[in-house]
Computed example of a mutant assay.
Amino acid sequence: MVITTTHIVLGVFIGITFLGMFTLIGYYFYLGYTRMDSILEAVKNCSLINSYRFYLFMGPWGKMMMVAGVGNCLLFSKYLIKHGALDKGGGYRELSGASQGAIAYVAVHRMGVVGESFFGSYRSQNS
């Protein structure tokens, strides 16, 4: 087999993908283990986020899911407030701008992964 430029480019893209995946997993663990107390303190009155608290007892992956759940609440805060699922004075705005941005980034990335897996399975079923 001859290694062409296409193989090298694809190999680099695959390597970057895996490097980014492990970097983001590490970042999620960082948020889950070091910032979770401040995150939960800021949103302690929100019933929707309190319903996610069972994730805290599921180990490291549960902490990652908790961060992602809070991120989703921050990402869709206007919609959730409008429909009564998120408390308007619940304190999610008390998080610092950097924390809100970081957690919302986690939510956007998680939505991309979930959306891709959903549409990937949808495409495979309809092919």
Rank of each mutant, 00 (worst) to 15 (best):
N72G: 14
T17W: 11
L19D: 06
S77F: 14
S77R: 15
M111C: 12
S124G: 05
V43H: 00
V67K: 00
G15P: 10
V70R: 00
A104E: 15
V113N: 08
G97L: 15
G15A: 15
D37A: 15
G71Y: 01
Y122D: 07
G20S: 07
N126Q: 12
F76H: 15
L75I: 09
F13Q: 08
E116F: 06
I14G: 08
M1G: 05
R110M: 13
H83T: 10
I14L: 15
M64V: 12
D87K: 05
G115Q: 13
T5M: 07
C73Y: 11
T5Q: 11
T17H: 09
K82M: 07
N126C: 06
G91A: 03
F22I: 07
V70K: 05
F57H: 10
K88N: 03
T6I: 05
R35T: 04
G59K: 00
R35K: 15
G120R: 10
A98C: 10
F29T: 06
G97P: 10
N50K: 02
V12F: 14
N50F: 11
E41F: 13
L80P: 00
V113C: 08
G112T: 09
F54P: 04
H7G: 08
L31H: 00
Y28P: 01
G69T: 02
L74K: 01
E116W: 07
M36F: 14
F22N: 05
F57A: 12
H7W: 14
L80Q: 00
F29E: 08
P60I: 05
Y79T: 06
I103E: 00
T23R: 15
Y33T: 13
I3F: 01
I16S: 04
I8E: 02
Y55G: 03
F76R: 14
I39Q: 01
G90P: 01
I14A: 13
G71T: 03
E116D: 06
I3T: 01
Y92W: 14
M1K: 06
S121R: 14
F22E: 04
T5R: 07
G91T: 02
G69Y: 01
L10Y: 09
R123F: 05
G101R: 12
V12R: 04
V108E: 11
L75A: 12
R53E: 07
Q100K: 15
G115V: 10
Y52W: 12
L24F: 12
G89M: 04
F29L: 08
M64W: 02
Y27H: 08
G15M: 09
T17N: 12
L75D: 04
Q125W: 03
S38C: 10
I8K: 05
F54C: 05
F18I: 08
A102F: 14
F76G: 04
F118M: 13
V106S: 09
F13G: 13
